[in-house]
């Protein structure tokens, strides 16, 4: 038997079971979602296959567009705050001694894996009238009398940043650990000041990673559900909540699917635009 024949035999043995898994549990569900979004909605949580765009037409009402705009605005602000904190944090962590570094990694991994349910609950306790933060503020005289710090947008934002921060620090970790320390040192010997080094040497080297980190935050937060539901007011609701309400509350699966597809499409368009802009800027430089 030739090597090639043997290799292709080995490959088919290796890959057939994973291929079946991927087909049934990744490809089919995605196709199903697409079909569902153009399916016919009947009363009582039922639907029948077909092709109609009535669900998408429903999305054009100002109510949905307002929620969509708010969701993306929220995600973008979260992304800005998170990346601003995560970048220096990740940079410092990669420069620590091994033991401290491992401790940080363990801490970050543990918080990253914490259920959104728990984080939201913890913030609820922390920000409530009886929670530690309010008591501290009252003692310090910042706050006149105990008063709950939620629901409001700020609470939603802080909680979202908390949820994605460990992800983003760990996402930036490999890129920053690869950063050659000799480059800033070389710039310093040529008379560059630390801020100057940061702007003209460090930042350009990691610009791609920062950009990807920014997009990653948007992916994670634009569909957020629990956080705005618990820590926000109804006017702070997001697409995630609408989708969930359509699917679980009113039982209109086609509408929920259309909303989900629209969410992914808007994301894709935004990312495409952002990449295009980045490339145009690179080309002009």
């Amino acid at each position: 038997m030739t090597t090639q024949r043997r290799d292709s035999l080995a490959l088919s043995v290796l890959l057939s079971a994973p291929a079946v898994f991927l087909l049934t549990l990744s490809v089919v569900p995605v196709l199903l979602l697409l079909q569902l979004s153009v399916a016919h909605h009947a009363e009582g949580g039922l639907w029948s296959p077909g092709f109609e765009l009535s669900q998408y037409a429903q999305l054009l009402n100002p109510e949905f567009l307002k929620v969509a705009a708010f969701s993306f605005g929220l995600a973008i602000v979260t992304a800005l705050i998170t990346v601003t904190i995560a970048f220096p944090a990740a940079y410092f962590i990669t420069r620590m001694r091994r033991r401290t570094q491992v401790a940080w990694l363990v801490g970050l991994l543990s918080t990253l894996s914490l259920s959104e349910v728990l984080v939201v609950f913890a913030f609820q306790v922390l920000l409530s009238g009886g929670g530690g933060l309010v008591k501290a503020l009252v003692t310090l005289g910042v706050m006149a009398q105990p008063q709950s710090l939620y629901p409001n947008v700020a609470a939603v934002l802080v909680c979202l940043v908390y949820l994605v921060l460990p992800y983003i620090i760990l996402f930036l970790y490999p890129a920053l650990s690869r950063l050659d320390d000799d480059l800033p040192a070389a710039a310093a010997t040529m008379g560059a000041s630390p801020p100057r080094i940061f702007v003209s040497v460090t930042a350009p080297l990691v610009r791609g990673s920062l950009f990807s980190a920014f997009l990653l935050v948007i992916i994670f937060t634009v569909g957020s559900y629990l956080t705005p539901l618990v820590l926000g007011r109804p006017q702070h609701w997001t697409i995630g909540i609408l989708i969930n309400n359509a699917a679980m509350g009113t039982g209109n699966l086609p509408l929920a699917a259309a909303q989900a597809v629209a969410l992914v499409l808007i994301m894709a368009v935004l990312f495409g635009l952002a990449r295009g802009l980045g490339r145009a800027r690179d080309a002009s430089e």
Partner: peptide, 25 residues
């Protein structure tokens, strides 16, 4: 297959949740 397999993780959680809820239905 690796990129197909990794793609679901990059969709918003609410989208994959809906997808699978419909799938099992």
């Amino acid at each position: 297959m690796a990129s197909v397999g990794s793609s679901l993780f990059l969709l918003p959680g609410v989208v994959t949740a809906l997808m699978f809820s419909a799938f099992w239905g």
